[in-house]
Design a protein around this nucleic acid. Structure first.
Lengths: 334, 334
DNA sequence: CTGAAAGCGCTTACAG
DNA sequence: CTGAAAGCGCTTACAG
């Protein structure tokens, strides 16, 4: 038995003594086909191990069943879970996910996009690499639905993002309600839009609470290590007026902060409180679990996939999803 | 300006007063084309915003540029990084990743596979859902290259996996060299193949060290929470002869164990030592960083993608990748 | 209810 | 160096 050539509708048709058109009708479940004919054809389809060639069908039908998804950083659980949400939704609707990974490189992103558009996706969900500019996206034809996720890109793009400012404001308010007097904002790069938005939310909450003069911002890499090192320094240098409330740029930073506090024998959820942002899976798995601002990344992915089908050439969608406080440590300072 | 119809080679040809064949030649960079003709055509391609329709080309050329990748759990960083490695390699070779996510559900996996095969992938990389049996994979035609990753599936499949046993043996040896007297194996479900392989490696090292009678196995969910709860119990109940060495099923468990130790004020890397497995990104980011058994998941992904192109109908590849000790905490007990 | 013919967008022999 | 024709595997009007 050599490498059997793939069987096609013409083969099925010949084997059944019908025309390809009839086989096609059976394939699409058309009620036009005589029951006996249908049975015969279906049996042959099963017997022969026929596999539908969707690319050929799509070409003829002038449709597409693929959506392209470009992720900036798959190693980040937030984006990995987002991707799983996208794929989930698409699979349910009979679509398929064409994945591209930019690894935060604008050049790789351009290559990946150039490759993916050639597969005629019905739309593109782009979680852009850092510092993506409008001119990096010129391969995206105006009549191809594009949804930018999470990070704004200069220009008018359909967008799905988080309400960073209100989120951070709620985070800070939570700490205030717990009775914390000295609350700082830790982590992220001040020049990133999401960081400045979150800082602004923190600042607003502090101001409304009459604590404008205590505002403190600390920069760090948006990682656990960054948060750890940053918090360690804070605890070292602000020894006399150590903050007890930490609004963090994201969960990774927050987990690093928790670690630094633990090292100093400061019990999180008791002498100090920490709020993260993103609700990555680790936030809930951690011990003690991390209070954070949440919009399930998976739900976001599903929403993004949904939006792709709602994009119209003449309008620009701009959806900012509220983030909610997910309280996992209920106690504050004595 | 209405929704411009996509431009195709025929349009380019007409605009340049040449035949579609010539445009096609230009597209593939054929040296046959006259320089002036080429220039003219290339200019028109650029001007018109032409996008190559790879599906049509592939149909005609009888080739495919897609590889299907089915992941059991994208929220797990190990698999997310694996996926990024696959996509990396494929993108370099001009291929594209068709992503499917099973979420550890055998039924979803079947649906996803059925959908993906219709896109004529050149091959399929499958990181199978738990409890996948041969009969769950009947849609995978014999002459479609399939590579099973990480978990064996009954039957003869091309396979890429980790040397779990030797890895765990090395992990245990490391703890023995550090001088630990009481070493336990923590985490995982005993009935999972990877867990029983790792347990066997631990057992072998203990036996070679003449510590057969101290062997202790503890089961837990393969998560951080599982490791935390398990270790907490161990520390509670084995109070008199507390183990100081922990060979862990995977990094997530190991990080949970670290957390439990920290809560008991036992300093990891000093009074106790923990070894993980997988080297997920968090292992290196953690504080203190986690000593673990490593084969970069990203490198594994790249290797898997490479292997897909080496699969031949008449042979079965079976590659077991060694895992190396990645020492991140160099001290042991006093 | 079924078939013959044309065509989706591309490429490949084959002529010239 | 270039073009006319055929065909990848499918589906869709159109006849009958």
């Amino acid at each position: 038995m050599g490498a059997a050539l793939p069987v096609k509708v013409a083969d099925i048709a010949k084997a059944c003594g019908v025309s390809p058109a009839t086989v096609s009708l059976v394939l699409k479940g058309s009620p036009l086909v005589n029951a006996k004919t249908r049975e015969k054809v279906e049996a042959e389809i099963k017997r022969s191990g026929y596999v539908y060639n969707r690319a050929a069908a799509n070409l003829r039908k002038q449709v597409s069943t693929v959506v392209a998804l470009i992720i900036n950083d798959l190693a980040n659980p937030f984006f990995a879970e987002f991707a799983s949400g996208v794929d989930n939704y698409l699979a349910q609707r009979g679509f398929v996910t064409l994945l591209g990974h930019s690894g935060e490189s604008v050049e790789r992103q351009a290559q990946v996009l150039n490759s993916l558009v050639q597969h005629s996706p019905v739309g593109i969900i782009l979680s852009p690499a850092e510092h993506t500019e409008a001119e990096d996206l010129t391969m995206l034809n105006r009549n191809l639905p594009v949804l930018v996720f999470n990070r704004e890109v200069p220009g008018s793009w359909n967008f799905l993002g988080l309400d960073n400012q209100t989120g951070a404001e709620k985070a800070c308010q939570h700490l205030l309600h717990l009775g914390h007097q000295q609350i700082v904002f830790v982590g992220g790069h001040a020049d990133s839009p999401s960081c400045s938005q979150r800082r602004a939310g923190y600042a607003r909450a502090m101001q409304l609470a009459g604590k404008k003069e205590y505002q403190r911002f600390f920069e760090s890499a948006p990682t656990k290590r960054g948060g750890f090192e940053c918090a360690s320094q804070i605890l070292e240098h602000l020894a006399d007026q150590t903050p007890s409330g930490f609004v963090c740029y994201n969960d990774a930073v927050a987990l690093g902060v928790c670690q630094a506090l633990a090292n100093k024998r400061i019990r999180v959820g008791w002498q100090a409180s920490v709020v993260g942002f993103d609700d990555i899976q680790e936030a809930g798995d951690h011990f003690p679990p991390l209070t954070t601002m949440t919009t399930s990344p998976k739900a976001l992915g599903e929403r993004a996939a949904e939006m792709i089908f709602k994009i119209r050439p003449d309008t620009v969608l701009h959806e900012i999803v509220p983030v909610e406080l997910m309280i996992r440590q209920s106690t504050g300072p004595k």
